[in-house]
C-alpha cells in the first residue's frame, strides 16, 4: 500500500515538472509576453519581480508546487485573479459531465459487452461488435452536433446548449446535461464494449462459470452474478485508463454545448496565452487522472480476496 502511494507521489512530481517546464521555461520571458513589444526595460523588470520570474527556475517551481499544496494555484497573468477562484465554480460542470459520461458509458457497455460475448456466434453479438467498431470511429463532438440538431433544434425536447448549476435548479441542470452526457457517454461506451466483451469472454471460459450454471443459473444470470465480479478487476483498470480520454472528451464537448466548465476556461486561457491559468487547470486534470488510477490500484485489493490475503500478511 505504501509502495502504491510512493508511485503516485512520484508520478505526480514527474507530471508537475513536465507541466512547469512546458509552461514556464519554454515560452521565454513571460513579462515580455504579457506587456507586449512597447514595454520599457524598467516595466519589464518590475513585471518580472511581480511575477517572481526573476528568480531561478527551481525556486519558481518549488514556489508553484508548494502553493498548490496549500490550495494556492497562483494568479492569472492578465486579470490578476487567483486561479483557484477562476477554477472553482467551473469544476462542477466538468465533474458532472465526466462522471455522467463515464456512468452512462458503463451502463451501456456492460449489457452490450455481455451480448457481444454471450451471443458472439449469433447475429446479436455480431451486430453489437460491429456497432461498437463504428461507434469508436465517431468523433464525440460530431455526435454532439448531431444530437443538438435532432433533439435540441428539430424536436426541441432539450436545451441545445448552456448550463444551470445543480444548486439552483436540479431539473434544469439535468435537462441541460442530457445531450452532452449522451454524446460523451455513447462514444465512450463504444470503446468500452470491446474491453467488456473480452473480459466477459475470459470469464465464460472459466470453470467456475460452468459451476455456477451447473447449480441452476442461466447463462445471463451466471454472468451477471459471477462474471461481473470476476471481470471487475480488468474493467476497473480499463475505466481508470479511459478516464483521461473521458476528461479530454469533456473539454471538447463543453465547447460543443457552450458549457462553462474547466475545458471552456482552458481553451479561453489558451487563446489568451494566460499560461498561469492553463498550467493550473492542466495540473488539476492530470492530478485527477493519476489519483483515480491510484485508487484503481487500491480497489484491486477490495475486489480480489486473494490479493487481500497477500496484503494483510
Amino acid at each position: 500500500m505504501l509502495a502504491r502511494l510512493g508511485i503516485f507521489a512520484l508520478s505526480l512530481a514527474l507530471a508537475s515538472v513536465v507541466i512547469f517546464v512546458i509552461t514556464q521555461a519554454l515560452p521565454g520571458d513571460v513579462a515580455a509576453v504579457i506587456l507586449g513589444h512597447g514595454a520599457t526595460a524598467e516595466q519589464l523588470a518590475a513585471k518580472r519581480a511581480e511575477l517572481g520570474t526573476d528568480r531561478p527556475f527551481v525556486v519558481q517551481y518549488l514556489d508553484w508546487v508548494f502553493g498548490m499544496a496549500t490550495g494556492d494555484f497562483g494568479r492569472s497573468w492578465f486579470s490578476g485573479l487567483p486561479v483557484a477562484t477562476l477554477i472553482g465554480p467551473r469544476a462542477e460542470v466538468t465533474i458532472s459531465l465526466v462522471v455522467g459520461g463515464l456512468l452512462l458509458a458503463l451502463l451501456i457497455a456492460l449489457p452490450l459487452g455481455a451480448v457481444a460475448a454471450l451471443k458472439r456466434r449469433q447475429w446479436p453479438g455480431f451486430l453489437t461488435s460491429t456497432a461498437a467498431q463504428v461507434g469508436m470511429a465517431v468523433p464525440a463532438f460530431w455526435a454532439g452536433i448531431l444530437l443538438v440538431f435532432v433533439f435540441g433544434v428539430t424536436l426541441g425536447w432539450l436545451p441545445p446548449n448552456g448550463y444551470v448549476p445543480i444548486g439552483r435548479d436540479p431539473v434544469a441542470w439535468a435537462r441541460h446535461l442530457v445531450l452532452p452526457v449522451t454524446a460523451l457517454g455513447v462514444v465512450q461506451a463504444a470503446v468500452l464494449v470491446r474491453y467488456v466483451r473480452s473480459a466477459f469472454l475470459e470469464v465464460l471460459g472459466e470453470d467456475h462459470y460452468r459451476t455456477a450454471r451447473s447449480i441452476g443459473w442461466t447463462r445471463w444470470r451466471a454472468l451477471a452474478r459471477h462474471g461481473v465480479r470476476n471481470a471487475a478487476l480488468s474493467l476497473v483498470t480499463v475505466v481508470g485508463l479511459q478516464l483521461a480520454a473521458v476528461i479530454v472528451g469533456a473539454i471538447v464537448i463543453e465547447r460543443v454545448f457552450v458549457l462553462p466548465g474547466l475545458g471552456s476556461l482552458l481553451l479561453d486561457m489558451v487563446s489568451q496565452h494566460d499560461l498561469a491559468v492553463v498550467r493550473g487547470i492542466v495540473m488539476l486534470l492530470v492530478l485527477a487522472v493519476l489519483a483515480i488510477n491510484a485508487l484503481v490500484d487500491v480497489s484491486y485489493v477490495l475486489i480480489d480476496p486473494r490479493l487481500r490475503a497477500r496484503e494483510s500478511s
Binding site: 470453470d207 459451476t211 480476496p305
Partner: peptide, 10 residues
C-alpha cells in the same frame, strides 16, 4: 478441477 471450479471472489 476443484482448484478452479469455485468463484474466487465469493
Amino acid at each position: 478441477e476443484p482448484m478452479t471450479a469455485l468463484d474466487p471472489t465469493m
